[in-house]
C-alpha cells in the first residue's frame, strides 16, 4: 500500500508572524509538502518553503532533487519563500512549476519578485532547471499521482488542488472565500446553525477526501468586517467538509492576528459545529513541523 506523507512547513496567512504568540502553530506562510514514494509535490511557496529547502538539502545533499510545485495563486504569502528555496540554486535539480491559469502567470510572477529592485539574484541565474507546465482542465497524472484543480473565490483568482493516489485523496484549498458562494444564504442568515450549502461542483471536488487542508482564517465575528477579503469562516469550511464527507480537516492560513490560544478557540468552535451537524470529522489546526501519514 502506498503511503502519502503530508508535512506542514508554513501555515500562516498573509504575513510571517514569528514570536512566542504563534510558536505552536507557527509563523511561516503557506507551504505544504506531499511525498509519495520518491515523488515530491509542494503546495505554495510561502516562507515555509525555505525550511523545506533546507530540509531537502540536509536529507539528500548529493542526490538530484525533483519537485512538482503547485501555487494556489501568487499573492506574496504564497510565493515569497521561492527565492530562498535552496534546491533552486543547484544545477542538478529540476523544478516543475504548474500553472492552472495556463498563461505562464506563475512563472512570470516568480520571476518578477526576483527583479533586482526586490532581490539580489535574478531568476535567470538560478542554477536549477525550472520547467513551466500548464495544467490541463480535468486531471493530470504526475509521477503516478492524479492531480486536479478547481478555481476558488479570491481576489485575483486562486486554485485548489486535489491529489489522488492509491485510493487516497488529499485536497489543498487555501485562500478561498467559501462564504461568497453559499447557495442557501437566506436560510443560513435566519439560522446560523443551518448547514451552509456550497456549490455542487466544489463539493464533488472535495468529496471523500481523507485530508482537506483549507483556509479557515476567520471566526464568524471577524468575518462580518472582512467580507470580500478572500478568506473563509472556519465554520463554513466545516460545512464544506461535512457535505463532502471528509475524514480529516486541517484548518489552515491562520490569521496573523491570531495567537495560538485564538487558533485553539477557533478550533473548539469548529469542532462543536461538526458535532452540531452530527458528523465525525477530525478537525485540527495545521501546525508547522507536523507530518501526517495518509
Amino acid at each position: 500500500m502506498t503511503d502519502a506523507f503530508v508535512r506542514f512547513w508554513g501555515t500562516r496567512g498573509s504575513i510571517p508572524t514569528p514570536g512566542h504568540r504563534t510558536r505552536r502553530y507557527g509563523g511561516n506562510t503557506s507551504c505544504v509538502s506531499l511525498r509519495v514514494g520518491n515523488a515530491l509535490y509542494v503546495c505554495d511557496g510561502g516562507t515555509g518553503l525555505r525550511e523545506l529547502g533546507v530540509s531537502l538539502m540536509q536529507e539528500q545533499p548529493n542526490d538530484a532533487i525533483e519537485a512538482h510545485l503547485f501555487f494556489s495563486h501568487t499573492h506574496w504569502d504564497h510565493i515569497q519563500g521561492f527565492p530562498f528555496f535552496m534546491p533552486a540554486y543547484s544545477s542538478k535539480n529540476t523544478l516543475y512549476v504548474y500553472d492552472a491559469t495556463r498563461e505562464e502567470r506563475v512563472r512570470q510572477l516568480l520571476l518578477g519578485q526576483m527583479r533586482s529592485d526586490y532581490f539580489p539574484v535574478a531568476f535567470s541565474d538560478l542554477g536549477s532547471t525550472i520547467i513551466s507546465r500548464a495544467l490541463e482542465t480535468g486531471e493530470t497524472l504526475i509521477d503516478g499521482v492524479c492531480v486536479r484543480h478547481i478555481e476558488q473565490v479570491h481576489p485575483g483568482r486562486s486554485f485548489a488542488y486535489s491529489f489522488n493516489v492509491a485510493g487516497k485523496k488529499i485536497v489543498y484549498a487555501t485562500d478561498s472565500e467559501l462564504d461568497l458562494s453559499i447557495q442557501n444564504v437566506s436560510e443560513c442568515d435566519a439560522n446560523r446553525d443551518r448547514l451552509r450549502q456550497l456549490p455542487a461542483e466544489l463539493v464533488k471536488f472535495v468529496q471523500g477526501a481523507d485530508l482537506l487542508i483549507a483556509d479557515g482564517q476567520y471566526t464568524d465575528e471577524e468575518y462580518a468586517t472582512k467580507v470580500g477579503w478572500g478568506h473563509a469562516r472556519a465554520s463554513t469550511v466545516v460545512d464544506l467538509a461535512v457535505q463532502a464527507g471528509v475524514g480529516q480537516l486541517a484548518i489552515f492560513h491562520h490569521d496573523p492576528m491570531h495567537a495560538d490560544e485564538d487558533v485553539d478557540q477557533l478550533l473548539a468552535v469548529a469542532r462543536s459545529r461538526v458535532e452540531l451537524h452530527g458528523a465525525r470529522i477530525s478537525v485540527f489546526g495545521a501546525r508547522e513541523g507536523l507530518e501526517l501519514r495518509i
Partner: peptide, 16 residues
C-alpha cells in the same frame, strides 16, 4: 497522537 492528532512526526512545543 499530538494534542489529539494522529501524527507520523511532529516538532514538539511546550505543553503538547
Amino acid at each position: 497522537y499530538v494534542n489529539g492528532v494522529r501524527a507520523h512526526s511532529a516538532v514538539l512545543r511546550d505543553g503538547d
